[in-house]
Design a protein around this nucleic acid. Structure first.
Length: 574
RNA sequence: GCGCCCUUAGCUCAGUUGGAUAGAGCAUCGGUUUUCUAAACCGAGGGUCGUAGGUUCGAAUCCUUCAGGGCGCGCCA
């Protein structure tokens, strides 16, 4: 249920019926016509721009048209108690008491689905996919939380969503990683000094992985690297993925599927995918131009297999074979995405870090090529997280081994605070994450502020000896509302719109912003009671009237829906 | 050189399928507590929406120019 669509339909039908007398011909399917909430200084619940749009198309003065439509509404629609023309031709509409109550009752009866934008598609969201060479760091957290909340949001709307993690367990970085583990094991067992160089991973977690492997495999000798490699690779990856999964669990994230890159290679999926592209002439033998950026010493002009990604909007064609004829990372990724296409998703989403922006066009091109343009891959980029503490920026370079891990972060900051803060910004702007701020328990920390509003509501309900689970139906004869309540109810009516925009644009950050605004309205109402007794929610241990009760229940419903999509807890006492 | 993202109040940011007087938080200044949780609230000041053009009844939002900042530009993963 969405009251905006509901009333838009009613107005639309009225205008269609009276098309002739209004002298409207070109209706253009009412494109761009919406019903929304007017700016707060207006005492109306709804506002419609239909006359602005139709006026423009039909070359009628929008204000004039609005006057005529206003009369029509007054004479024919009993849903509204007041209609007025405002500004350049907006129609402002006040709901009749009956309609208002009806809408409120609708929400009360459908608590758990309030705001749901019904949809039944199959989504695959690939996110995190951090290299299995070490634990997650702060940068990964942002993408992880973004992807997870996107999944929650799409599931809330009724979609089937697979949360997927691509394990890059193939290639030279894995060799280097395994070598690092091997050398650490040698260090532990044989006292050979671990000499850091730029290809090795220096972090302490390598030592713990080494220790685990030693204690679980007493018989192993670890004599030389080549002979131990296959065994060690398997073991080391198992432990490092365990680290990552444990970090994810601490963030409240559980993936549905882990997809291994080396499996792809072993199952010859890559050959299959490339053959398919060869058949459509998207892959051919050829030469590439030298790269345009910084000079690359290793670049060689050699004939090799090339994917014609320029046919799908990429800037240049891309190599899928290395000098020695083996597949590039991209070739493997093509195969991976062929697999996703074969699994028949309606929508594919990849959540990437800012440093992978340059990769987007080619992989989207690959999906278009593989699916004959039937499946659209949407890559969403999360910009950098800049970590601050005591005014000092924290460095996060994995190479140097001094990165801030997700685990370290979570030792200081709660999962709730981290999730909320990471979402409290549009994904395509950089995010300053301030430790100190997140630890505060006041208005400056939005997660506490929102949680606190719910705690206050719960406190009211405790006083009243009522529970949120109780069925509440409004008795129209006792229904009264004050300014503060109407403001909150209007905000609550806005919720479905927030869900719609967040999910269609993949912009979950709108939810925390909205919840903060709702919490503000509630705190404001609450405090008004301290100043002026007639605004007290409770009088002599009893709720003032059903309008008041409805207001706080509605607020709590939306807070609960919102926070559960964000994956942030909502304690009833603080 | 090229691609993507960003530029809105002193600071950090919302707001862009064109709409009403551009909004929050922080900071600054001034107020509120015999109470349902002051972990809160109220008020004030603060703006050429980076620049210059264009499109139109109307632009922070769309188009073009320029400037500034970030990320990336392997046949690494």
């Amino acid at each position: 249920m969405n009251i905006f669509e509901e009333y838009l339909n009613i107005i639309r039908n009225l205008i269609l019926k009276n098309q002739k007398s209004l002298k409207i011909k070109n209706l253009n399917e009412f494109k761009g016509v919406i019903v929304e909430i007017p700016p707060s200084e207006f005492d109306y619940e709804l506002s419609c721009n239909i006359c602005l749009i139709l006026g423009k198309i039909n070359k009628i003065n929008p204000k004039q048209l609005a006057k005529e439509v206003k009369d029509l509404i007054k004479n024919h629609l009993k849903e509204f108690s007041k209609v007025d023309v405002a500004g350049p031709g907006f129609l402002n509409l006040k709901l009749s008491n009956k309609s208002l109550i009806q809408n409120i009752n609708n929400i009360l009866e459908n608590k758990s689905t309030y705001g749901k934008k019904k949809s039944n598609n199959k989504y695959n969201i690939e996110f995190v996919s951090a290299n299995p060479t070490g634990p997650m760091h702060v940068g990964h957290c942002r993408g992880a939380i973004y992807g997870d909340v996107l999944a929650n949001l799409l599931r809330f709307n009724g979609n089937q969503v697979t949360k997927e993690y691509y394990i890059n367990d193939y290639g030279t970085q894995i060799v280097n990683f395994v070598k690092s583990v091997f050398l650490r094991i040698r260090e532990i067992k044989f006292n050979e000094k671990f000499v850091v160089n730029k290809d090795l991973y220096p972090g302490d977690y390598i030592i713990s992985i080494g220790q685990k492997i030693i204690s679980l495999n007493k018989a192993q000798k670890f004599e030389n690297f080549e002979n131990s490699f296959e065994f060690l690779k398997k073991e080391a990856l198992k432990h490092s993925m365990e680290l990552i999964k444990s970090d994810l669990r601490k963030l409240g994230i559980v993936h549905d599927k882990f997809f291994s890159e080396s499996e792809l290679v072993r199952n010859k999926k890559v050959d299959k995918a490339i053959d398919q592209l060869k058949d459509s002439n998207y892959v051919l033998n050829g030469y590439l131009q030298p790269p345009k950026g910084e000079k690359n010493k290793n670049w060689k002009k050699i004939e090799r297999l090339i994917f014609k990604s320029t046919l799908f909007g990429d800037d240049t064609d891309r190599a899928i074979q290395k000098d020695d004829g083996s597949w590039t990372y991209f070739a493997n990724d093509i195969a991976y995405h062929m697999d996703k296409v074969e699994r028949k998703y309606n929508y594919l989403v990849n959540v990437l870090g800012a440093d992978h922006t340059g990769y987007i066009k080619r992989i989207e091109a690959a999906v278009s090529a593989l699916s004959q343009n039937k499946v659209k891959l949407n890559c969403k980029v999360c910009q950098l997280v800049k970590l601050y503490k005591n005014g000092e920026p924290f460095k996060m370079s994995k190479r140097a081994g001094d990165f801030i891990s997700a685990d370290d972060l979570l030792k200081e900051v709660s999962k709730d605070a981290l999730r909320f803060m990471m979402l409290n910004r549009s994904n395509d702007v950089e995010l300053d994450f301030d430790f100190n701020k997140v630890l505060e328990k006041n208005k400056e920390n939005p997660v506490f502020y929102v949680q606190y509003s719910f705690a206050r509501i719960s406190s009211i309900l405790r006083t009243l000896n009522k529970s949120l689970e109780e069925k509440i139906v409004i008795d129209p004869s006792q229904f009264e509302t004050n300014d503060f309540e109407i403001r909150i109810i209007k905000k609550v009516f806005e919720w479905p719109k927030i869900i719609e925009t967040s999910s269609t644009k993949y912009e979950p950050h709108r939810i925390p912003y909205y919840l903060y605004e709702l919490a503000t309205l509630f705190h404001s109402y609450w405090s008004k009671g301290n100043e002026d007794k007639k605004y007290r929610i409770i009088e002599n241990g009893k709720i003032k009237n059903t309008g008041t009760l409805a207001t706080i229940i509605l607020t709590s419903i939306v807070l609960q829906r919102g926070m559960s999509i964000l994956g942030v807890s909502l304690p009833d006492k603080m």
